[in-house]
Deep mutational scan, measured.
Amino acid sequence: MSGNGNAAATAEENSPKMRVIRVGTRKSQLARIQTDSVVATLKASYPGLQFEIIAMSTTGDKILDTALSKIGEKSLFTKELEHALEKNEVDLVVHSLKDLPTVLPPGFTIGAICKRENPHDAVVFHPKFVGKTLETLPEKSVVGTSSLRRAAQLQRKFPHLEFRSIRGNLNTRLRKLDEQQEFSAIILATAGLQRMGWHNRVGQILHPEECMYAVGQGALGVEVRAKDQDILDLVGVLHDPETLLRCIAERAFLRHLEGGCSVPVAVHTAMKDGQLYLTGGVWSLDGSDSIQETMQATIHVPAQHEDGPEDDPQLVGITARNIPRGPQLAAQNLGISLANLLLSKGAKNILDVARQLNDAH
Results as ranks from 00 to 15, higher is better:
Leu234Gln: 09
Ile186Asp: 05
Val215Tyr: 02
Arg173Pro: 01
Ile318Trp: 01
Glu89Met: 09
Thr136Glu: 12
Met56Val: 07
Phe108His: 00
Asn88Val: 07
Arg201Thr: 07
Gln328His: 12
Leu76Cys: 14
Ser45Lys: 15
His256Gly: 15
Val123Cys: 07
Asn118Ile: 13
Leu81Phe: 12
Pro127Gln: 14
Ser165His: 11
Leu137Asn: 04
Ile63Ala: 13
Ser96Phe: 00
Val90Asp: 01
Ile323Glu: 06
Pro302Thr: 14
Leu104Asn: 03
Ile299Lys: 05
Pro264Tyr: 02
Val103Phe: 08
Phe158Val: 07
Ile54Leu: 09
Val124Trp: 05
Gln181Lys: 10
Val282Gly: 07
Arg150Val: 06
His160Ser: 10
Arg156Pro: 13
His199Val: 14
Val282Ile: 06
Tyr46Trp: 13
Leu278Glu: 02
Cys211Phe: 14
Phe108Glu: 15
Ser337Val: 15
Gly216Ser: 12
Val90Gly: 02
Gln292Trp: 07
Arg173His: 04
Leu220Thr: 11
Ser45Val: 10
Gly221Leu: 04
Ser146Cys: 15
Ala360Trp: 02
Asp311Cys: 01
Gly111Asn: 03
Pro101Asp: 01
Ile299Asn: 06
Asp178Tyr: 13
Asp91Asn: 12
Val94Gln: 06
Gly197Tyr: 06
His126Trp: 05
Gln204Thr: 00
Pro105Leu: 08
Ile336Val: 05
Ala266Gln: 02
Arg251Ser: 05
Glu162Pro: 00
Ala152Ser: 04
Arg149Tyr: 08
Val103Lys: 13
Val94Ser: 01
Gln50Leu: 13
Leu188Cys: 11
Val267Arg: 01
Arg175Tyr: 06
Thr294Phe: 09
Met56Leu: 13
Thr133Glu: 12
Ala44Gln: 10
Pro302Ser: 05
Ser57Pro: 05
Glu73Gln: 07
Val265Asp: 02
Ala151Glu: 02
Leu193Arg: 02
Phe163Cys: 11
Ile205Gln: 15
Pro106His: 13
Lys43Tyr: 08
Gln217His: 07
Leu220Arg: 03
Arg201Gln: 09
Leu148Ile: 14
Tyr213Lys: 02
Val222Arg: 01
Lys348Pro: 03
Ser288His: 01
Ile248His: 00
Asp230Gln: 15
Ile291His: 10
Arg255Trp: 12
Leu104His: 10
Ser37Ile: 12
Ala189Cys: 10
Val143Glu: 04
Glu223Thr: 08
Ser337Gly: 12
Lys272Thr: 09
Arg246Ala: 15
Leu206Ala: 03
Ile299Tyr: 12
Ser290Trp: 15
Asn88Leu: 12
Glu250His: 01
Gly287Met: 14
Ile166Leu: 11
Glu139Leu: 14
Glu210Ser: 05
Asp121Gly: 04
Ala249Ile: 02
Ala152Lys: 08
Gln292Met: 13
Ala55Ile: 08
Ile323Arg: 08
Leu81Pro: 07
Val263Trp: 02
Leu315Phe: 15
Val301Lys: 01
Phe158Gly: 09
Arg325Asp: 12
Thr59Ala: 10
Thr172Cys: 08
Leu193Tyr: 00
Asn340Ile: 15
His239Tyr: 07
Asn118Met: 12
Gln181Tyr: 14
His199Phe: 15
Thr279Met: 05
Ile299Leu: 08
Leu42Tyr: 04
Glu162Gln: 06
Val38Ala: 08
Leu238His: 00
Val282Arg: 01
Ile187Ser: 07
Lys62Glu: 08
Val222Lys: 02
Pro105Thr: 11
Thr319Tyr: 14
Ile231Leu: 04
His305Thr: 00
Arg149Ser: 03
Val202Phe: 01
Leu234Tyr: 01
Asn349Met: 12
Val215Arg: 04
Val93Leu: 08
Leu177Asn: 07
Val353Ser: 11
Thr66Asp: 05
Ala40Trp: 10
Ile113Glu: 00
Pro119Ser: 11
Val143Pro: 03
Met271Lys: 08
Glu80Gln: 10
His305Glu: 15
Lys176Thr: 10
Lys348Leu: 14
Lys128Gly: 05
Ala219Cys: 02
Lys176Pro: 00
Asp121Lys: 01
Asp178Leu: 11
Leu42Arg: 01
Ile248Cys: 00
Thr66Trp: 09
Leu315Lys: 07
Ile113Arg: 00
Lys62Thr: 01
Thr133Ser: 09
Gln204Asp: 02
Ala191Gln: 00
Pro105Arg: 10
Glu135Cys: 09
Phe163Pro: 11
Gln153His: 03
Ala151Cys: 10
Asp307His: 15
Asp352His: 15
Pro309Phe: 14
Glu242Ile: 03
Thr102Gln: 06
Asp312Tyr: 12
Asp178Asn: 09
Val222Phe: 01
Leu49His: 10
Glu117Met: 06
Cys211Glu: 01
Pro119Met: 03
Ile231Glu: 02
Asn118Ser: 14
Glu306Asn: 15
His120Gln: 08
Glu52Trp: 05
Ala270Tyr: 06
Asn349Leu: 13
Gly203Leu: 01
Ile336Leu: 04
Leu85Trp: 02
Glu250Lys: 04
Asp359Trp: 13
Thr78Ile: 14
Thr319Gly: 07
Gln296Pro: 07
Asp65His: 09
Tyr277Leu: 12
Lys132Phe: 14
Ile71Thr: 09
Pro159Trp: 05
Thr102Ser: 13
Leu341Asp: 15
Leu97Val: 12
Leu92Tyr: 02
Lys70Ser: 07
Ser141Met: 13
Ala270Ile: 07
Ala297Pro: 00
Glu210Arg: 13
Val222Ala: 10
Met196Phe: 14
Ser165Asp: 02
Gly72Phe: 14
Gly236Phe: 02
